[in-house]
Design a protein around this nucleic acid. Structure first.
Lengths: 228, 228
DNA sequence: GGGACTTTGTTCCTGCGTTCACAAGCGGTT
DNA sequence: AACCGCTTGTGAACGCAGGAACAAAGTCCC
């Protein structure tokens, strides 16, 4: 009954999506939304959306719907977005530069306070308004800024040492883009985003769909010629 | 039981991880691996790993373990990696350029056959060995190359139109990096990768952990000055 | 050749997430 | 003021994923 006994992780991920949709609706001047419309825009089931929202207490009006601005602020508060989160980014390659320049982070309360790279050629360059610093200064910057989130976009070979240094420096949440499974000490949360894994799942689903005609397309799809 | 009655998506995602670990072990010259060691390297439970592998039939030797090369090839076959997949990439901004230059795709059977961007300044440039083409040629290239996978790395505003054009051109699997929920016709599978959502989940877990001291750290954690 | 150890493959069980369906409550209307 | 339709919030059932324990099977050693 308290504020948050426990919110499932799957629900948290969806809350972030709702928040994005609600921000767009607020910009369009919408005052209220129904669960059905919001669920449709987010690509989920209306009942599931209501259950997700029930985790943060009653925040809608029966017979009317949800007040867009109020619900947006409520979700932002629950997700911990009222306070800015300081992040450090290690590995300013192609992907790292893309992350540093991505505006979607800053508008959601995440601020990069340090960019690091091992290559001397990169050090000193400015990416997204911040200078790239040598990795030797990592611990110093983390301690000075109180950064709690670390993002790893390095080659796979050095991802684990970087993870160890981040954890030792006091970072408690790590987002890893390197294609390796990281091990972190107890109390440090690591989330893995493997781009090739996503592609392989897509390829498998495509193969499975093509091999099993049990899920036919309702589109004509022409000859196809496929046979079992 | 024979070929594939149905493999859960969660298992497919983990199979891709096992495949990466097995490739590394094969490069190190390892002949066999036990489920415990493989599970440890992949960061999963040994029992769960064996259950995942059971979906593709008995492929291990009791008392010994799994033959590294054999298991690797088996997983690669199941995931549909023996045949190369042609992909098109729309939106050559910071993120798109990073994806085009990422070597992890080519080594896993995914080949970019077309890069597209709406900006005339981008068109003609070469990224990752391929020329950037105008989006007007999208349908033509998809038809000529038979690409089945489309990757969207455009701004959010144009992601839905691009998705529609990809689907109409014959692409059946779409990986979307734009922060919008896409709607695709029946038969076209869309996977969403929202980087800010990942960060927000991390921030929430951190906030929850900090507010609820029920999960204490077993490390001393007192002075931040300590290091490995 | 036999015994014992190791490791896989399977089965059961617990818990979670998702979905469906209904009661409660609010606004608008007459 | 009362009725009625609409929407939220909640309770229950279904299905699925995850984890642990057990039996089968193969190998190594004596």
């Amino acid at each position: 009954m308290q504020s948050r006994p426990r919110i499932p992780e799957a629900t948290v991920a969806r809350l972030a999506v709702y928040l994005r949709v609600l921000s767009g609706l607020a910009d369009d001047g919408r005052g209220t939304v129904s669960s059905g419309e919001l669920a449709s825009a987010a690509g989920v089931n209306p009942a599931g959306l209501r259950k997700d929202l029930s985790h943060l207490g009653p925040c809608g009006t029966r017979g009317v719907g949800y007040e867009v601005a109020t619900l947006r602020d409520r979700i932002a508060t629950v997700l911990g977005m009222e306070t800015a989160h300081a992040c450090v980014l290690v590995g300013i390659g192609n992907l790292g530069a893309a992350l540093a320049g991505y505006g979607g982070f800053g508008s959601r309360g995440f601020e990069f306070v340090g960019l690091f790279d091992a290559s001397p050629a990169r050090v000193g360059q400015h990416v997204g308004g911040l200078p790239v610093r040598p990795v030797a200064e990592l611990e110093e910057v983390v301690a000075a800024t109180g950064a709690t989130i670390g993002v790893i976009a390095t080659p796979a070979e050095v991802a684990q040492p970087v993870c160890d240094r981040l954890a030792a420096a006091g970072v408690r949440s790590i987002l890893n883009f390197a294609p390796v499974t990281l091990t972190a000490p107890r109390g440090v949360d690591v989330r893995q985003v493997d781009l090739s894994v996503e592609l392989q799942v897509l390829a498998f689903l495509d193969k499975q769909r093509g091999a099993v005609p049990g899920v036919p397309l309702d589109t004509p799809l022409a000859p196809a010629g496929g046979m079992a």
